[in-house]
Write a protein that binds this DNA or RNA. Structure first.
Lengths: 228, 228
DNA sequence: ATTTTATGATTGAACGGTCAGTCAAATGTA
DNA sequence: TACATTTGACTGACCGTTCAATCATAAAAT
């Protein structure tokens, strides 16, 4: 079925071009995406090690060998997936780059987290899994660093995202402190808040009982109410 | 060689036992524990699939083959570990079997969670990993059910523990509701509380930066303060 | 005290299966 | 024809598992 889609794409791009140039590149890119999508689903569901290249290929409607035309190795494929998603998710949270969060923006921020979790569920499943194996995590970080030439960021993508979020929130909670009395420990409250978000993310992302979305939305609103 | 065969034949004639002492059983049990300990550490650090029997055996100071004298398979070893720890942890939380939690007991309960996380860090690392792979989780549940003859519990150990905790807490939060006004949604607050605990557990258990214990203890106290 | 013997513990080479990765050939495509 | 894409049989390494053989020890026999 994926195979058919792929053929269609080729047909569409079948202009009179004598040159196999930029169009070709686009087809290639589309297929790359297809493979990554298939791989992500398998990695997320069964884990990295339990997933075989053959399964990924079959699901993507291509042969095993072709995989290696697009990615040099299974590990490279994994890293590429993670790197790409991280980059993409980065965009979502670039809005508050001034570092100042209003209450409204804070609310938006939390909702944005929820939307992102929902939209990229599989990716977060994979990410959680990755972050729980020190061996793999180290490998990832090490390799992110070697890829970093691509972006102008000097720190590794995974923790960079975490850091940016942390910084913005830290400022927000500090400002709350100024408003509130002396008793209020902003760092501590921030940490508790992060635990809550983490726990929520974990629960949401790995929830299989096809819970109501409404249930989770209520939780999101409660969290906002508690911490805004 | 031939010599050996003769021995075997004699063996068949089946004299009564010049057998070793019953204490042998204790040594056996000790070695079983040793293997399980070694396996747990590897599983926790590198994940189930990335861990080889050879590694476990080498770390335990025994040969690969001997592993199979104590456990029928790698998977059985995993299940045995999880089952044992679950059973053990059960004990810790059996105190409030009456289902009624006072504020003091609630405080104790949270502290107990923290102590358990600390004491059985590796196990919780493994457990978190397991719970994130649907494939493995299903296998586990299915097999727990087949082992259940051992204990008089009719539901599987992992979720049973979860359920018991949930029930006790649910009652506690409901009672809070009665005290507080109408605005208070006990179920919702309970869920948020659980997210927080989960997030805290996740952070604590996979923390590698050798954070101060003091830091986490402060968090524990804050959580108590927020939810008691 | 010494030797014999039975038995469980232990070893590691070997087996069978799996899987990441390769490559020569086939199949388009211009 | 020339060039690119795609395939899937194949390879070599690895790993869970097995098993024939050895070791260690305690009781029995001498």
């Amino acid at each position: 079925m994926y195979h058919k889609i792929q053929k269609t794409i080729i047909c569409i791009t079948d202009y009179m071009t004598p040159r196999t140039s930029i169009q070709l590149e686009k087809i290639r890119e589309a297929k790359r995406s297809l493979i990554m999508q298939s791989a992500l689903e398998h990695f997320a569901k069964n884990g990295y090690y339990a997933t075989t290249i053959s399964h990924i290929a079959k699901h993507a409607g291509i042969s095993k060998g072709l995989m290696y035309n697009y990615f040099p190795s299974k590990e490279a494929l994994l890293k590429e997936i993670i790197y790409n998603y991280i980059q993409e998710i980065y965009q979502y949270f670039d809005i508050n780059r001034d570092g100042y969060l209003t209450e409204e923006e804070f609310e938006y921020f939390i909702h944005q987290i929820y939307r992102t979790l929902k939209e990229k569920k599989s990716f977060f499943q994979l990410l959680f899994q990755m972050m729980m194996q020190s061996e793999v995590r180290l490998k990832l970080i090490e390799l992110q660093k070697s890829i970093e030439t691509l972006a102008a960021r000097s720190d590794d993508s995974i923790t960079a995202l975490e850091k940016q979020i942390y910084k913005t929130l830290s400022d927000y909670f500090k400002r709350k402190k100024e408003k509130a009395g002396q008793e209020y420990d902003s760092d501590l409250e921030l940490n508790i808040f992060i635990y809550t978000i983490k726990g929520f993310a974990l629960t949401y992302v790995f929830n299989e009982t096809e819970f109501d979305e409404e249930y989770f939305e209520k939780s999101v609103n409660k969290i906002i109410e508690l911490y805004k």
